[in-house]
């Protein structure tokens, strides 16, 4: 009996490992490639109370997408999608920039209102999806179209710049030598992981994503679960928008977070989650983010045209989706079988 128990948990561990195998392999491959190109790629040095080097740079740059990916993971797990995160980033950035420029609100107030604007956007998205029954793609498309307009309106069509040491700390400050943005990602990751995996929320999210009808029979309020997921995404997007704004000390409603919704979705897909909902893993999605950002850096460092990025991402998405598709797997194994026979 004890023996079988052990073998069970061993198998479980193997199962979990196998979900990590491919993303980790991809990341390692990229890193090895980089080290071969430039032996000092992974070097980190400490200077003026702060760490420098490619790894830190990759982590710092990936912070906004990492935050988006955390929210996106949960939304996708409920069987939805949020296309508006880039626009929400723009709104939150514009809200904060204007508060900093036009009022003398305290830093805390600015941060609170910035976050609140994102959560409100999430509430709207979630309301449209779970209470009005609009398909998630369309519901969030609305805010994707309108959101940048709202941000532009707040900024009166300008790039609003500000000088505020406290707020800029979000983007360019360091804590213990490590950029604040990385700490923020770690904090949001830990809190969401705690909320989702140390309470039953994560299980409820997966249940709703796998089978909303059966979840209703179990007494799970699927609408509330979905609403919360979109609110979490709104929160994450707002924080990402604020980091981006703090980074450039201004709000550029046109360009902030452009295409980042796609990167976030790609990260979740690279992490192995199914777009139809169900099982999710935030650590795996973050691994996906690291792959994407390392790829960006690799292309930049190796001197290839940076636009190759888009091509490679496109091919990566299609390949990962094909590998998840039953039809494709059958075709491949069929082909392999025929090849072995001949």
């Amino acid at each position: 009996m004890i023996n079988t128990e052990i073998s069970h948990s061993f198998k479980e561990r193997l199962l979990i490992t196998s979900r990590y195998t491919w993303p980790i392999a991809a990341l390692v491959l990229l890193l090895v490639f980089n080290v071969l190109m430039d032996a000092s790629f992974l070097n980190i040095h400490f200077d003026h109370g702060r760490f420098y080097g490619n790894p830190i740079d990759i982590l710092h740059r990936s912070a906004p997408v990492a935050l988006l990916a955390i929210g996106m993971t949960v939304v996708i797990a409920t069987g939805g999608i949020d296309l508006s995160v880039g626009a929400v980033m723009a709104i939150a950035g514009a809200v904060c920039a204007n508060l900093l420029v036009a009022t003398d609100a305290s830093l805390f107030t600015v941060l609170a209102i910035g976050i609140a604007s994102g959560v409100l956007c999430g509430l709207i998205n979630g309301g449209l999806v779970s209470y009005m029954g609009i398909q998630p793609i369309i519901a969030t498309l609305l805010l994707m179209v309108t959101g940048r307009g709202i941000a532009q309106l707040l900024n009166d069509g300008q790039i609003v710049t500000f000088q505020h040491a406290g707020f800029s700390f979000l983007g360019s400050g360091t804590l213990l030598g490590i950029p604040v943005s990385i700490w923020l990602v770690l904090a949001v990751f830990s809190i969401s992981q705690l909320l989702l995996r140390r309470t039953a929320l994560g299980l409820f999210v997966e249940a709703v994503g796998c089978n909303a009808s059966a979840s209703r029979y179990l007494g799970i309020n699927d609408r509330t679960v979905k609403l919360m997921a979109y609110m979490l995404t709104g929160f994450c997007a707002a924080l990402a928008g604020m980091i981006s704004a703090a980074d450039i000390q201004g709000s550029d409603a046109n360009n902030v977070g452009l295409w980042l919704e796609l990167d976030a979705i790609l990260a979740v897909v690279l992490g192995g989650a199914a777009l139809s909902g169900g099982r999710f893993s935030i650590p795996l999605s973050l691994l996906g983010v690291l792959i994407i950002q390392t790829l960006n850096t690799t292309i930049m460092v190796s001197g290839m045209p940076s636009k190759l990025n888009l091509l490679i991402k496109a091919i990566a998405v299609v390949l990962v989706l094909l590998l998840q598709s039953d039809t494709f797997r059958k075709q491949i194994s069929g082909l392999a079988g025929r090849w072995r026979h001949s």
Binding site: L262, I265, V269, L275, L310, A314, I315, V317, T327
Partner: peptide, 16 residues
């Protein structure tokens, strides 16, 4: 053929 969702396929198409 592979029953992929149109929005993700065309999103990849957009990237490409």
């Amino acid at each position: 053929v592979y029953k992929l969702q149109p929005f993700i396929v065309t999103l990849a198409g957009m990237f490409f």
